[in-house]
């Protein structure tokens, strides 16, 4: 190599090789991060309490944010679920001008989301179910199935994030209670 190529050409080829290699490494690193991330929002959600129930997130404070990037004006509750133990039913009644719920899979991708206007009523009742479980359920449907928002998903693990806006500090306790008593669990 040192004999056959002129110095300038050698340096140029070297720079080109560095550039090509760095592009490949850059792309590989970016694509590998989601697989290697040790603390995902799904695993963080476990720190707030047991699975399959809504856990109120501690108030958002500087330096002690339960999850990054949440709206400081809102109150939040999360529920982590696994669909292997059967479908998950979400019910909540939050007496505030605005609330919304987002369902995310274990990679943090949105499965479904709605707010209190698109829910059609002030009471949330939503069933998250895998296609296999739904076909079993349809053979012997419960009476109130048509009153539920039924969402099919193939992701067997995930979490729900319920956001509610407390209209005034005086109503904080009431909102906290409504979030805490929101139901997330098995459907029977």
């Amino acid at each position: 190599m040192s004999i056959l190529l002129p110095t300038r050409l050698r340096l140029g080829l070297g720079a080109l090789a560095v550039l090509a290699l760095s592009v490949v490494v850059h792309v590989l690193v970016i694509l590998a991060i989601p697989r290697q991330a040790t603390h995902s929002s799904y695993s963080e959600a476990a720190t707030f309490g047991p699975d399959r129930q809504f856990n109120l997130l501690p108030p958002l404070r500087a330096g002690a944010e339960p999850l990054p990037g949440l709206d400081p004006a809102m109150k939040h509750a999360t529920c982590r679920y696994q669909l292997d133990n059967g479908p998950v039913l979400f019910t909540a009644s939050v007496p505030v001008p605005f609330w919304s719920i987002g369902l995310f899979d274990d990679t943090g991708e949105v499965i479904y989301s709605l707010n209190n206007r698109t829910a059609g009523s002030d009471i949330l009742s939503m069933l998250l179910i895998t296609p296999e479980q739904l076909s079993i359920l349809r053979e012997n449907p419960p009476e109130d199935l048509d009153k539920l928002i039924v969402i099919e998903t193939r992701a067997s693990r995930g979490f729900a994030l319920l956001r509610a806006l407390s209209p005034a500090a005086a109503r904080d306790l009431e909102v906290d209670l409504a979030l805490k008593t929101a139901y997330c669990g098995s459907f029977s």
Partner: peptide, 17 residues
């Protein structure tokens, strides 16, 4: 995707805002 999973950030879904 890399930024959101690494920082454990929960996005605001389109049905919410």
């Amino acid at each position: 995707v890399a930024i959101y999973t690494r920082s454990a950030r929960v996005p605001l879904a389109l049905g919410e805002g």
